[in-house]
Design a protein around this nucleic acid. Structure first.
Lengths: 210, 210
DNA sequence: GTAAAAAAGGGGAAAAACACCCTTTTTACA
DNA sequence: TGTAAAAAGGGTGTTTTTCCCCTTTTTTAC
């Protein structure tokens, strides 16, 4: 069965083109297109089921992406959502991620990468683009993870699962030995000594949404 | 250095006797005695440092234990607190624990057990009395952990640390093989297959305070 | 007062995680 | 265009975790 998507964006033209693009994907279909966050809230309040992924624009009239994401976190914390925006604004990115957003895409993303992002959210639960990890690293006020690389952040998320490292390696298309390297590097940087330590760090610092 | 305690209880006589009892302990001392939660809030708002443990009565005028615990969770989530009450009320117990309270003592507890509870909160971060685990099991609306025993709950908390199982066994004064048994039993009951799964379950269900 | 359940303990083997050593390739960037 | 950092990969061994079987003792419930 196809995975469902709801697009929330006031740029109708963009939303409809995106719908067209998604129609070319075998595994995804668009359920609804809403012009602002309030319409999404109404959808949920009407008792209708959420989609597999909500694509959320940031700048919108009535109820913008940030407010909508907050509402989702409060009311439907399990709902997966991806931010999809023109704004390459660190603060937005961080706020969205902290509110449980599973990734942040720029609207000039390549269709291939866009598809990969959708699949990644379905399979791994999130999609960290370079923009996201950079923003997280730069925007970290306490410099707790300033030294973490993009791949390390990605691995850290995968470590918060019941997969073995070998399975994580498969998921990330890497050799188990490479994963070994990330683990050791993170152990040192985060001053932990076990995978449990990694998981606790990730959760404490909102790098992984429980 | 002695570990510090603040008592919050409107029963002055009880609070002062408790202070007397604590004076006989080598490792603990009472910093302050407050008559209600508001006085504790004022203490914090005055910029004064929190104690190692707050002992919190439930039924109090002005600001009761539940409200105070909520305030602590919101403003000083790291602050360790123990509920200390006459009420053997399941709903109170669960609400307090969900708000990050590290344990729930009945006021008719034996002095020895009371000291053990204090030490346990300092060393392990919490103290689950029989009352607490029973209430948690009985009061669980979703029956997610109805079958968990007291010891399993206790072990589950210890599993959320970087200790090896051998170290956990030492902490709980049990043979590593017994710990093995708890683990296997929990894997089956919680439908997880690794220690990571245990940690994630505990955190998702507020059994472990991150 | 007995029966069941929980708690405690165990043997032995396989899988996973961890540690510590290392090399090569790719990328960023000054 | 050189160099540093990141990414990727490797060897070998130890420790920890996991699994599947089992027994005895203690607690709890009826």
């Amino acid at each position: 069965m196809k995975k469902t998507i709801i697009i929330v964006d006031d740029h109708i033209l963009f939303a409809k083109s995106l719908n067209g693009l998604i129609k070319t994907y075998d595994d995804f279909e668009v359920l609804e297109i809403f012009k602002n966050g309030q319409e999404l809230v109404d959808h949920f309040n009407g008792g209708k089921p959420g989609p597999d992924i909500v694509l959320l624009d940031i700048k919108m009239p009535v109820k913008d992406g940030l407010e909508t994401m907050e509402w989702l976190k409060e009311n439907y914390p399990e709902q997966k959502a991806l931010a999809l925006s023109m704004e390459h604004d660190e603060n937005y990115i961080i706020k969205m991620i902290k509110n449980g957003c599973r990734g942040y895409l720029l609207k000039d993303i390549e269709p291939d990468e866009f598809l990969y992002a959708l699949q990644s959210v379905i399979n791994s639960g999130y999609y960290y683009s370079d923009e996201v990890s950079e923003a997280m690293i730069k925007g970290d006020p306490e410099k707790k993870f300033e030294n973490l690389t993009r791949r390390e952040l990605e691995f850290l998320n995968h470590a918060c699962s019941e997969m073995t490292y070998k399975e994580v390696a498969g998921e990330m298309n890497l050799s188990p030995k490479t994963i070994d390297g990330y683990r050791e590097s993170l152990f040192e940087k985060l001053e932990v000594k076990s995978r449990i330590g990694l998981v606790l760090f990730a959760i404490k610092n909102d790098l992984y949404q429980v």
